[in-house]
């Protein structure tokens, strides 16, 4: 990596401990970084730890029963070391988040305008009237028709897609330097998904905001991200520039994921290949490759503790003992 990144997550581990139950490790040493203005994808199946990673970065995990270690450096300061109120001052202003479910992520009893102005009022010196004006402006920017009237309405009066636009407006309100979008389109109708994704990426690119895009959908990544991190069982298993990842995936899991995506340009009749098994059949990383039980290429060599990320170039690394052919082979 060149110089200091905007966001630098290193060896992040999150464990949940609930009374009467064994502790579960949701994030098991995730490292990735995001440069200013860059759009980085975090991809993986549900349960791989991507949402928890984002909540940990934002400091939004419940305090009780959660232990977090590692470091999350944002612009040089370790967010994990900040006090709750210091962190709250940065949330919404320096880094913001767009959530998965627009139907439940807005407060049903407050007007949309109010939910926008309260971020502005918390982090800027705008007075009530100015904040209101800015809120209407923001609603217009995210493509909500008749924003002045809509500002006085309540969430239930809007469709899911419109609500997600409002959540995007809220995230962008204070021009943060980083936005974390957690499955921002998953809960929407397929026809709306593309529109909302387009809007999000356009706004982010225009304003030069960096974004972490969390998704299980490689299709979403393909059109938006500069770089992609593939997560499996709480660790990054492959990290690569977008083009390289799609052209020459090295980790067998990434390969599997790509094979499971339907492609329009594939010849008719090409079968899809689902990744067999589920995330629940996994090894502890301390024992061997967590993906080994589902991997067609796994052998005894895969059962070594803590396999490291490696690759011919630092920009493209994979955590695999038997990686798919080198880029040369593919080319």
């Amino acid at each position: 990596m060149t110089g200091v990144s905007l966001l630098d997550v290193e060896d992040l581990r999150v464990r949940f401990q609930r009374k009467g139950q064994p502790a579960t490790t949701a994030v098991d040493g995730v490292s990735f970084s995001v440069d200013a203005g860059e759009v980085v994808g975090l991809v993986g199946e549900s349960g791989c730890g991507k949402s928890v990673t984002s909540l940990a970065v934002m400091g939004l995990l419940p305090r009780r029963g959660t232990s977090i270690s590692g470091s999350v450096r944002f612009d040089g300061t370790d967010l994990l070391a900040l006090s709750p109120s210091e962190l709250a001052r940065r949330r919404g202003r320096d880094l913001a988040m767009v959530f998965q479910d627009p139907m439940t992520s807005l407060n049903p009893v407050l007007t949309l305008g109010r939910q926008l102005t309260e971020v502005l009022r918390a982090h800027t010196d705008l007075d009530r009237a100015a904040a209101k004006k800015e809120a209407v402006e923001l609603l217009g920017r995210v493509g909500i028709p008749d924003p002045r009237r809509r500002a006085g309405e309540f969430p239930h009066q809007l469709s899911g897609g419109m609500r997600q636009r409002v959540l995007i407006a809220i995230a962008l309100a204070c021009s943060p330097r980083l936005i974390i979008a957690d499955e921002p389109t998953t809960a929407l109708d397929v026809t709306i998904q593309a529109q909302v994704l387009d809007l999000l990426t356009t706004l982010v690119r225009e304003s030069g905001t960096a974004m972490v895009l969390i998704t299980h959908d490689l299709g979403v990544v393909a059109g938006t991200c500069d770089r992609v991190n593939v997560l499996y069982a709480g660790r990054v298993v492959e990290s690569a520039p977008r083009g390289e990842l799609f052209a020459a995936p090295r980790h067998r899991y990434t390969q599997g994921l790509l094979a499971a995506v339907p492609r329009v340009d594939a010849p008719e009749g090409t079968p899809l290949h689902p990744v067999r098994g589920s995330v629940n059949d996994r090894l502890a990383w301390e024992v061997g490759c967590a993906f080994a039980p589902r991997c067609a290429h796994a052998d005894a060599a895969c059962r070594v503790p803590d396999i490291a990320l490696s690759g011919p170039r630092p920009e493209h690394t994979a955590r695999c003992v038997h990686p798919a052919g080198t880029p040369l082979e593919v080319a």
């Binding site: 579960t24 949402s51 419940p62 959660t66 629940n280």
Partner: peptide
């Protein structure tokens, strides 16, 4: 659903 519920595997 808290984040916790979403993440811990369903208890049998």
């Amino acid at each position: 659903m808290t984040a916790l519920d979403a993440l811990t595997p369903q208890a049998p």
